[in-house]
Design a protein around this nucleic acid. Sequence first.
DNA 1: TGCATATATGCAAGTATTTGCAGACATTTA
DNA 2: TAAATGTCTGCAAATACTTGCATATATGCA
Lengths: 129, 129
Amino acid sequence: MPSRTIAAKELAELFKIVSHPDRIRLIEELRTGEKDVKSLAEMLELPSARVSQHLSLMRAHRFVAEERSGRRHFYHLTQPELADWIIEGLSFVEGRLKGLSPRDINEARALWRANGSSTSISTPQEGSP
Amino acid sequence: MPSRTIAAKELAELFKIVSHPDRIRLIEELRTGEKDVKSLAEMLELPSARVSQHLSLMRAHRFVAEERSGRRHFYHLTQPELADWIIEGLSFVEGRLKGLSPRDINEARALWRANGSSTSISTPQEGSP
DNA sequence: TGCATATATGCAAGTATTTGCAGACATTTA
DNA sequence: TAAATGTCTGCAAATACTTGCATATATGCA
């Protein structure tokens, strides 16, 4: 199999993991450091069993790693730059805005950015009518 | 709804579209310019009805745009930087390599970066889904 | 006009993901 | 040790995606 094909498959898997709103939010919450399941569940307003499931999927794919302390399980991103890369994807959402105004995007970007990380995001672009 | 939640949803949709190997390859093929359905189908070795379906999905989400000329429909990326951003995702695949060696990744990266056209570069590979 | 080519679309069957819930474990505390 | 807390896992129902195939539409040409 041509390596491009292999790589496309791997990439598709990567995208699949990240293509769930809850998981995206989890990754963004973990951007600033490790957190335990319950905190995450409260932040996202989700049942912690659900959060645990998402984390377990991400763990299986090595997006996050676990570290236990007492009865709590702390998770952290194995590749923190992942969060930045995801945010960059916002540039491509901008064009096709559907329920999201440019204001919303900037606000979201600012919020996520807020608590400090790295990277810069390239700016707008226009699509077609 | 908090804008972070909205943005996460939009991002998830974006990722969903891109989370199919065929679509990733299509995007990469279109990176170098517009192409018609048949050519794309031949490049990816897929039935053109399938390619057409993928393109139609991506069109609906404004990832690509169509331009007709005679009986052929040419497609191009509305946001060419999308292809680059996708390739950057390879960095996050590297860690979790499953069937893909760092060599494969570099090769794939080089091919795409370069002038990646047709197939032909095969790499040893073994089943491990 | 009739026929071939290029694309698009619809649908059904197969497959995968998501979600809610119930229980299972492990750890801490009374 | 029992009870409480934090997290994980399993399962079934609902939902969404993918795929193959048949058919529809549109264009070009003899």
